[in-house]
Amino acid sequence: MTDAASNTGEQLMIELRDMNKWYGEFHVLKNINLKVKKGERIVICGPSGSGKSTMIRCINRLEEHQRGDILVNGVPLTHDIKNIETIRKDVGMVFQHFNLFPHLTVLENCVLAPIWVKKIPRKEAEATAMKYLERVKIPEQAKKYPGQLSGGQQQRVAIARSLCMNPDVMLFDEPTSALDPEMIKEVLDVMIELAREGMTMLCVTHEMGFAKTVADRVIFMADGQIVEENEPHEFFNNPQHERTKLFLSQIIDH
């Protein structure tokens, strides 16, 4: 394992220690060890079925791990509902299929959790929501319903919705995979800007350009394990493992 985060003194945001997960009999995640410092931007890639989505979904307990430890901001993720709630408040998540609430307007999507989970007064929550909608460049859509927006716009709303909770970490689960090609850039631009502002990010994506631009580290997963991790330049130009080389040759061939 890398020692990139082992030099203490810097605040650890996320720590996975020998984390294992099974789906029934199937061992999906095997002895995952990962440390993420505050402000670090990490891109996770790998073939489909390698467990990368499952791994980040374990971090906010959308999936339950069966062995090992997960610590977010020092809080251990256990069956304790209090801890789960604390962690979910601090961790934002953006999904492949946006998962906006279709019966609520864009603005209502953004203020719902701040008002009900963080108990922020509506006025203040709406002001914050408008600030983030401006940052993702769609304040004019605030009164519309998600169904009236394009895929790229919906995904930007989803990012704004997560940011409204003022999270310490953002998890992105293939945020551009369900988008039409001409809409990928508008979403990536928002993510790049977010990265530049120092947000701690874990991003499962196949956008290698994004990885090269913003990632501090690229993690390659296969068969439920972390095969290799490195800073992007080394990762792409000098992959160590055969499995990584094969994967990179396959995605670059296109």
Partner: peptide
């Protein structure tokens, strides 16, 4: 109701009844 709706609500920290 798609599973994603439950997950989005969970990830935002909403409780079961909310």
């Amino acid at each position: 109701i798609p599973k994603g709706q439950y997950e989005a609500a969970d990830s935002l920290g909403l409780g079961y009844w909310q």
